[in-house]
């Protein structure tokens, strides 16, 4: 009779469930990391950390802005020990809310360029990344378009419907914050409105934008510099190329991925051990070789053929001024970019 069959099936399912249960109920003390960086970028090095030190790490992944907001909401209760962000502004927002623990000088001094460290010593940069315009040269030729001199030029009519962007992505959010700081709220708001009016194509993240440019769905997209190299590593034939906006344009913002320790963490020592590990030569070499970012310690060089960090004509800006995350998020939402 069929009910018997179902009973057997449910029993089987239950057995599998029970077999899985021990894996779920593990009470060992672990370091909890909230990561605003994609798992594919930071996951392997965190796994390596666990392997090298024997310290178990639990990682919550999400968008940097989302994770920062989550920590702000959780407040004192946050299970997070370490926050890894892909934007100095999000770290700044937590610093401004007085939630971060000051880092020791020995940790901070690993990073030579003071621009990539919190002035109050509350967070430290782990790797550097530049905002760029990724483009498909053939498609651009076909369409008779020339590369723009500034991110602000992308609102021109000839770019209608042709620009990919990721309005919820933290690096993009930071870029808009930089616009607010350098050009004022009004100009930033106008740029967003003009981009939307110009039918900018929204993507959930940077990777799909690069994929779309490679596929020829769109000729150009606003992304971080390193995503393209992941595709090039799979397929060197790809012709998509990076364009750095010249002349200190706000579109060439250099930002950091960084880390901070939560004041509320009761595992400060382990947390610091992780941050130091991420600044070690081996971890920095990992960022250079695997995520194609700029290492921030002098002893390690970028792994791919990138313009030197110092040669990028980036805008003059203090990363810790990018801390009005909430303000920018609201501006982006009110602009209708998320609709």
């Amino acid at each position: 009779m069929s009910a018997t069959r179902i009973t057997l099936f449910s029993l089987g399912v239950l057995l599998v469930a029970l077999a899985g249960a021990p894996a779920l109920a593990d009470d060992e003390p672990v370091l909890t990391v909230y990561s605003g960086r994609n798992e594919s970028l930071i996951g392997p090095i965190l796994a390596q950390f666990s392997e090298d030190t024997g310290i178990a790490v639990e990682i919550l992944y999400g968008g940097t802005s989302a994770v920062a907001n989550q920590i702000l909401t959780e407040g004192e209760n946050s299970p997070a020990d370490v926050f890894i962000a892909q934007d100095g502004g999000a770290l700044g927002a937590l610093a401004a809310a007085d939630m971060l623990q000051a880092l020791p000088e020995a940790t901070l001094s690993r990073v030579l360029d003071a621009a990539f460290v919190s002035p109050a010593g509350l967070w430290v940069g782990l790797s550097g990344r530049a905002r760029v315009l990724v483009y498909n040269p053939e498609l651009l030729d076909e369409m008779g378009l020339e590369l723009p001199g500034s991110i602000l030029d992308l609102t021109a009519d000839k770019w209608r419907g042709l620009v990919g962007w990721a309005p919820t992505n933290a690096s993009f959010v930071a870029n808009v914050t930089a616009m607010r700081v350098l050009l004022g709220d009004c100009d930033a708001e106008d740029w967003l409105a003009a981009m939307i009016a110009n039918d900018a194509q929204a993507y959930p993240k940077n990777t799909p934008i690069v994929q779309a440019v490679i596929n020829g769905e769109i000729p150009v997209g606003l992304v971080n510099h390193y995503y393209l190299y992941r595709f090039l590593a799979e397929d060197p034939e790809i012709t998509a190329t990076l364009h750095f906006f010249p002349g200190g344009d706000v579109g060439s913002l250099i930002n950091i991925a960084g880390a901070a320790i939560l004041q509320s963490s009761d595992r400060q020592d382990l947390a610091l051990q992780l941050v130091d590990y991420l600044l070690s030569d081996s971890a920095q070499a990992y960022f250079a070789a695997k995520t194609y970012e700029y290492p921030l310690v002098t002893s390690v060089d970028p792994s791919v053929d990138l313009p030197a960090l110092a040669d990028i004509e980036a805008p003059e800006i203090d990363l810790s001024d990018l801390d009005d995350l909430q303000g920018t998020l609201e501006m982006i939402e009110n602009s209708g970019a998320l609709d």
């Binding site: 449910s10 599998v16 469930a17 249960a21 894996a23 779920l24 992941r230 799979e234 695997k290």
Partner: peptide, 28 residues
């Protein structure tokens, strides 16, 4: 196809165990 794959390898049996386990527990 050979497109870029995630560098994070999650064994299929872990996924299956979690999925079936939590679904069975919920069903009960």
């Amino acid at each position: 196809g050979h497109m870029i794959t995630s560098p994070i390898h999650v064994p299929l049996d872990t996924l299956a165990q979690n999925t079936v386990g939590v679904s069975a527990a919920s069903a009960l």
